[in-house]
Design a protein around this nucleic acid. Structure first.
Lengths: 357, 357
DNA sequence: TTGTAAGCGTTATCAC
DNA sequence: GTGATAACGCTTACAA
């Protein structure tokens, strides 16, 4: 192995793993040639190429990316920061992103903030110390410490799932206010005048709050008041049930309930069924997310499809193309790119008037 | 910055980023003191500590983990390989694992195989070249190439979500056959004699197939035949509906249907409702996963709770404690540890006999 | 306690 | 095309 046989007078720490030097020695070429071969097999003469290849196989050589990255001053790692991995939206985005990055030989460093700003800062700091090729972060509102780190980063920074604020290099997302407004218009057209919004932890989930605000503001302009339920128990079918109870309590004649999430909406549907409330005849229900069950539950759920996978794919594609682009003279000088992937209102029975059915 | 002002005669590539040397210079101490301070602030004298701290803040120093890891010959990265990130089971496990590792300052390198053995091998190879602290992989069946890489790895290897085969260093999971047997016994005790199993892509999802086999074999011993539906469309509520249709087609008098997944089971419930089939009176339905909706859907779903989060947490804990343990003289010589986290049958209305209700 | 300097395993520059 | 050799930025053995 790489161990030199002569005893060094002082420091010496062999990690006896197969190194490039070992390969070079066995193939009887210089380490540079091995390095070259690894990066561009065509570049070495067809005479020594097979020798190198064989040496690699025989020795079971695995390149040390750490050393390589250090020397080259760049990694094949992308840092990704999401609020929660348990959340189906983000895991879908991450899945799509991972797939695309993977195709191009990039690895994902993943971290979750749990909607905690301090954790976010720490994660960004840690990821930066990995010298990542790029950094992907969720949302566009970050505290000052995070913003400063991000600004200093020598890697492109992408924000996802939300548009606005002061973009760094890339934003891929959509307007959550617009989602709220779209739902508001939909329910209003349905003729609903008594409307509730069911959210969970909207103090920290800023995007949910924006959807809520969008809906409320739009309806306010029409003179329709919205009763807002904000549960602290997190979004789940159970909390959906609680939300319906709370809504019926606070607004007994409620005609429509918009949920910040399909999972909660499902809970509302079940609770309504349990209470003998007819959806949509007596109560219209909408969600957000278009999760797999939403098109098959009874009744099928009107919801917003957020294109979670598109966001991940697009982030990867944009970042990748940006990396290929001949490096700009002034790093970070380029205009930030903002991509609105939009969303789609999916109208289903849970919010249809009886005559539409 | 780290740039030396005197022009070097030959090679020189400044990445003009703030280095430890810069911090040392500003604090007027040696680099090693800074290094020491970073790793153990108590170890330096209270006189220079604040100087270093200030220099770090003023300069906005971010340590280069690549250089550090290379020098120390160890990383703070854990490679994690899962079949799919979109799958709620795995994302829950990953979330729990990430949380625990994060608490101890470890980062996650994440990759998805999409149930493809070749991708698995590639991912393992790539992750190994990161010199990870440990490697976590899903399942215990891997092809030869993967096994060889894993065997050579100088990092502990943990397998999750499944037990059996030849464990490397750690296995945390449960028996999927036992799951199938448990469900079989449950349905049998209910009095069901005409039973179907609804799975999806069981050729590649080996764990689903084990659950199916466990159920079928157990019932075979009781003389009960099982009709197996294996859809190629993937597990979803939609495929659940298709599965029910297929089951009714192949076994018109089916009394119970065990689904390889809660999501499919939900589809079955909806389809049954649509067809006017009373669950559980006419048809008992069971799932697997105990997803959030399962306890609130109508009727609530009998299912298996797999302790996805526990698996992730336990993996992290075991690995962490293994890392703290004074390094074994012979790497990999220690006995592999196998942890059966078990699972729980959650009996709900979807499989109760009418008299139990 | 603090400093010195030798690696860690690559990549990249330059001369041949 | 191939090979020396100097970084890359840090950790750590050892001396002071």
């Amino acid at each position: 192995m790489s161990q030199t046989s002569k005893a060094s007078p002082r420091v010496r720490r062999g990690t006896n793993r197969v190194t490039m030097d070992d390969v070079a020695a066995r193939a009887r070429v210089s380490p540079s040639s091995v390095s070259l071969f690894l990066r561009n097999p065509e570049a070495v003469s067809p005479r020594i190429a097979p020798r190198i290849k064989q040496a690699i196989d025989v020795l079971g050589y695995v390149p040390n990316l750490l050393a390589g990255s250090l020397a080259a001053a760049r990694t094949r790692a992308i840092g990704v920061v999401v609020p929660s991995l348990g959340n189906a939206f983000f895991s879908e985005t991450v899945a799509a992103m991972q797939k695309e990055f993977d195709r191009h030989g990039y690895q994902l460093l993943l971290g979750a903030t749990d909607y905690d700003a301090v954790r976010e800062t720490e994660l960004v700091r840690t990821f930066l110390s990995w010298s990542p090729t790029a950094l992907v972060i969720t949302g566009c509102r970050h505290d000052d410490a995070t913003r400063m780190l991000l600004r200093q980063a020598r890697a492109p920074v992408a924000e996802m799932w939300e548009l606005g604020g002061e973009p760094f290099d890339l934003q891929v997302g959509f307007s959550h206010r617009a989602v709220g407004e779209t739902l508001a218009a939909h329910l209003y057209e349905l003729g609903a005048q008594r409307i509730a919004f069911a959210g969970a932890r909207m103090t920290s989930d800023l995007r949910a709050r924006q959807r809520c605000d969008g809906l409320r503001d739009w309806l306010a302009r029409k003179g329709v008041d919205v009763f807002v339920v904000d549960l602290q128990s997190g979004a789940s079918p159970t909390s959906g049930g609680e939300a319906l109870a709370a809504a019926l309590d606070g607004m007994p004649d409620v005609q429509a309930i918009a949920c910040s999430n399909d999972v909660m909406a499902l809970g509302v549907l079940f609770e309504a069924q349990r209470r003998g409330i007819d959806v949509p005849a007596q109560l219209a229900v909408t969600g957000f997310g278009d999760l797999p069950f939403s098109q098959v539950c009874v009744p099928p759920l009107t919801t917003i499809q957020p294109h979670a996978a598109s966001i991940g794919l697009r982030i990867a594609q944009e970042l990748l193309s940006q990396l290929d682009t001949p490096a700009d003279e002034n790093a970070g000088a380029a205009e930030p790119k903002v991509v609105d992937v939009g969303f789609q209102l999916v109208t289903r029975q849970s919010s249809e008037t009886s005559r539409d059915v």
